[in-house]
């Protein structure tokens, strides 16, 4: 599902990051570990097509990302990738439900409101569907973000420090939910983190 080989990326010509080779099968999960500045976020952005212009090879869902035009990459991302970020992840002008529905809307795929409600309910947010995202807690917000990431049945879920801002209880809950939804959707989950609490949750670890 994900294949990285001789991948490197340069923000500026004299500051280049080289990544270790690895592959992930469909439904396989992994942690991307490393100090800050080691390129975890960069790798995640490359895998999600948010950054372009790498050297080497990076295949996601059997597609070499460099071969896609910018517009095609947008479509590819909308269909195949689900993102979960550390914070500030929800659109504050919209309700919980609308935030989740944004995902299929922006990806240009069929909007299934029932599915959105099912996903939110399965993440324990059934009562918050119509709430404004300004009214919910940070842990709940992170769960909304997870719901949004899996709305389009992505092949790959990329999570960037999804738990760093959460307390122990929410951290455990969020990583469990992430693993659950990924497994349920048979999606590959890659979590970039330096959060030590996650080390024993996912055995497959790639050190950058």
């Amino acid at each position: 599902m994900v294949a990285v080989s001789k991948l490197s990326f340069a923000y500026t010509p004299d500051r280049s990051i080289t990544f270790p080779d690895f592959t992930l099968d469909k439904g396989e999960h992994c942690l991307l570990l490393g100090e800050s500045g080691s390129g975890k976020t960069t790798l995640l952005h490359l895998m999600g097509g948010l950054l372009r212009g790498y050297t080497g090879s990076l295949q996601v869902a059997e597609t070499e990302l460099a071969s896609l035009s910018e517009g095609a990459l947008d479509k590819f991302r909308g269909k195949n990738i689900g993102f979960v970020f550390q914070k500030n992840h929800l659109i504050s002008a919209l309700s919980v439900e609308k935030n989740v529905i944004m995902s299929p809307y922006l990806a240009g795929v069929h909007i299934d409101t029932h599915h959105a409600h099912d996903v939110l309910t399965s993440l324990g947010l059934g009562e918050k569907i119509k709430s404004s995202v300004k009214e919910i807690s940070q842990g709940q917000a992170q769960r909304v973000a997870i719901a949004r990431a899996v709305m389009n049945h992505p092949d790959v879920i990329l999570a960037d420090e999804p738990t760093s801002a959460l307390d122990d209880k929410n951290c455990a809950l969020v990583i469990k939910l992430l693993l659950d939804v990924a497994t349920r959707n048979n999606a590959t989950l890659a979590v970039a983190t330096h959060d030590q609490r996650l080390k024993d949750k996912i055995k497959n670890q790639i050190i950058l």
């Binding site: 909308g78 992840h89 659109i91 944004m102």
Partner: peptide, 11 residues
Amino acid sequence: DLAIMRSMGAS
């Protein structure tokens, strides 16, 4: 918000 929208596939 705009960046997030792009991450969800918005062109």
